[in-house]
């Protein structure tokens, strides 16, 4: 048992954010990194992860402020609490990095990912795919007599679940964007 008497593995879901910094439990964290959109900035961030042996589960990046040339990089990473702290500190050291937010600990947040699924099939399978897509609120963005392309937005878990269901129904190709995330509510200060 940890010094804070928290059951291992539960800290991430605790309403009171009682994280045990000495824990050796691997946690998943979503980091939002606001950077100057200058040449090589993404390579700096990715190079930091590969160079120091950290994980990247997903990564999205795009310019969010065209006049100020700021980009937001959303990274889903895994590690013990100590490693997560170290990742944040190392990110903060990169000169063009302006802000590092750990959305997993900074309060409630929303995470969304967009995916495109190409499902090829005919007959019952094709009907079933369309029915399930409706349940998952996926849109049909391309259709031929032998295939659909579905567009689905949701949490990574929801997209995983949809992929599992489509697999026996003729799943041919998948493209996923990776996670984009924002904290809920109004930002203080």
């Amino acid at each position: 048992m940890s010094p804070l008497k928290i059951k291992k593995g539960t800290s991430r879901h605790s309403a009171y954010d009682l994280r045990d910094p000495h824990s050796d439990v691997i946690e998943s964290h979503t980091l939002a990194v606001v950077v100057d959109n200058e040449a090589g900035v993404l390579a700096r961030v990715i190079g930091l992860f590969s160079g120091r042996g950290y994980n990247i589960d997903s990564l999205t990046v795009a310019e969010i402020d065209h006049t100020g040339h700021r980009s937001r990089i959303t990274i889903v990473t895994r590690g013990t609490p100590a490693v997560i702290e170290q990742i944040k500190a190392q990110l903060g050291r990169i000169v063009p990095v302006h802000e590092v937010h750990d959305l997993t600990v900074e309060g409630p947040s929303v995470e969304r990912e967009l995916a495109l699924f190409k499902v090829a099939g005919t007959g019952d399978k094709r009907v079933e795919a369309l029915r399930l897509a409706d349940i998952f609120r996926a849109n049909v963005v391309d259709s031929t007599l032998g295939s659909f392309v579905f567009e689905i937005t949701g949490t990574p878990e929801k997209i995983d679940a949809f992929a599992e269901l489509m697999r026996p129904l003729g799943l041919a190709e998948v493209a996923r964007t990776g996670v984009a995330a924002l904290g809920r509510g109004i930002v203080e200060g």
């Binding site: 170290q86 190392q90 903060g92 050291r93």
Partner: peptide, 11 residues
């Protein structure tokens, strides 16, 4: 002066 030095090796 470097926040990443804190708790990197020794807590």
């Amino acid at each position: 002066i470097d926040p990443s030095s804190i708790n990197k090796v020794v807590r």
